[in-house]
């Protein structure tokens, strides 16, 4: 296709030359634009169409943070009696080989607290701030470079940590709160898991973490009978996790398989006996004065349930978790030791 007019007179030669140059420029411009569009189109080409689900890549577990078990015959579970949580924790850890057995110099320690509700510490619905402060301090003294505190509470996270006094305790001891944000969750599919399939978990809190210590109170729980070390891990789930209440024992057992902590501290100094897991009244509480420490959450829970006046048989998840290899309900096999921090009071 070209101009049908014959070439104009000779005096127009110059404008025509100009026009030809302009044409070549335009041709080049169109060519570049077409090539760019074609190139971008081809480079973005998606021949197969979108996948059914994004983030198809899922984690298998949150990690195994266990330290090597002590040599045979040494105690692997401590039962501490007393009233001062800091002293109880110190005595319990000492009985298990000292803090150095769990936290080494340069470790980044994640403290998984129970901050589920925006309730004052005195109501016992959350991990005690005194215990958090004691553990965080102990980690620091053992040489941990960073101490993180995390939970995905049911109520608004900021207010949960503030109201429960956990934020203050963390600030006072130099620990850093990791509050849940959508970006910190990624899907996890537990191998052979039945419930934890493509489920968002709080994996962002584990970035760089080398040790995990769980700090759980002993509480009555309407659906699960009791909320202790294993149930505390529920706070690592995201999404609409309450669908798991349809199979609470199944999910608690799978939570144990999802994460292997370094140490579990089950705090029965004050026990919520009724109206759990929220409580709300001091009359729901009982001063039991016991703390259990072990790397085995099944064992701490098997003992802790006794503080609620119930037996391990009342917690079907214990058998499920034991069958899944999470831990043992045979506490005697862990060579438990009992420590009294206040002999006079005891």
């Amino acid at each position: 296709m070209k101009d049908h007019d014959p070439a104009p007179a000779a005096q127009k030669a110059r404008p025509e030359a100009l026009s030809r140059r302009a044409f070549l420029w335009r041709l080049a411009g169109a060519g570049v634009a077409a090539a760019a569009v074609g190139g971008i189109g081809l480079s973005l080409r998606d021949a197969v169409g979108p996948a059914a689900m994004e983030n198809a890549r899922a984690l298998a577990t949150l990690g195994d943070f266990a330290v090597p078990a002590p040599i045979a015959g040494k105690p692997r579970l401590a039962e501490v009696h007393g009233t001062d949580r800091a002293a109880m924790f110190t005595a319990g850890v000492a009985a298990l080989g000292g803090m150095a057995a769990f936290v080494a110099r340069g470790d980044t320690v994640l403290l998984k607290v129970n901050a589920a509700f925006a309730a004052p510490a005195v109501l016992g619905a959350t991990t005690s701030p005194e215990l958090l402060a004691a553990v965080a301090t102990a980690c620091r003294e053992a040489g941990a470079s960073r101490v993180l505190v995390a939970d995905n509470p049911i109520n608004n996270p900021e207010s949960c940590f503030e109201v429960a006094g956990l934020a203050d305790a963390a600030r006072a001891t130099g620990a850093r709160l990791v509050l849940p944000r959508p970006a910190l969750f990624s899907p996890l599919s537990l191998p052979h898991g039945r419930l934890l399939k493509d489920w968002p978990v709080f994996s962002g809190a584990f970035a760089g973490v080398t040790k995990v210590i769980t700090l759980a109170p002993v509480k009555d729980h309407q659906r699960a009978v009791a909320s202790m070390s294993l149930k505390n891990l529920y706070g690592l789930l995201g999404g609409r996790r309450n669908i798991f209440h349809q199979d609470i024992n199944g999910i608690i057992a799978e939570l144990g398989a999802m994460l292997t902590p370094t140490l579990c501290v089950l705090d029965g100094t004050t026990v919520m006996m009724t109206n759990g897991p929220t409580g709300g009244s001091l009359s729901d509480l009982r001063q039991a004065g016991v703390m259990y420490l072990s790397a085995d959450p099944v064992a701490t829970d098997a003992l802790g349930v006794g503080l609620l006046g119930k037996t391990p048989a009342d917690l079907p998840y214990l058998a499920l978790a034991q069958a899944a290899g999470v831990g043992t309900t045979d506490v005697a096999s862990l060579n438990p030791v009992t420590v009294n921090t206040e002999p006079a009071a005891g």
Partner: peptide, 14 residues
């Protein structure tokens, strides 16, 4: 991304 059948549109634009 550009779903493959839409490459026709690239041809039109070019």
């Amino acid at each position: 991304t550009l779903y493959a059948p839409l490459l026709w549109a690239v041809l039109v634009l070019a």
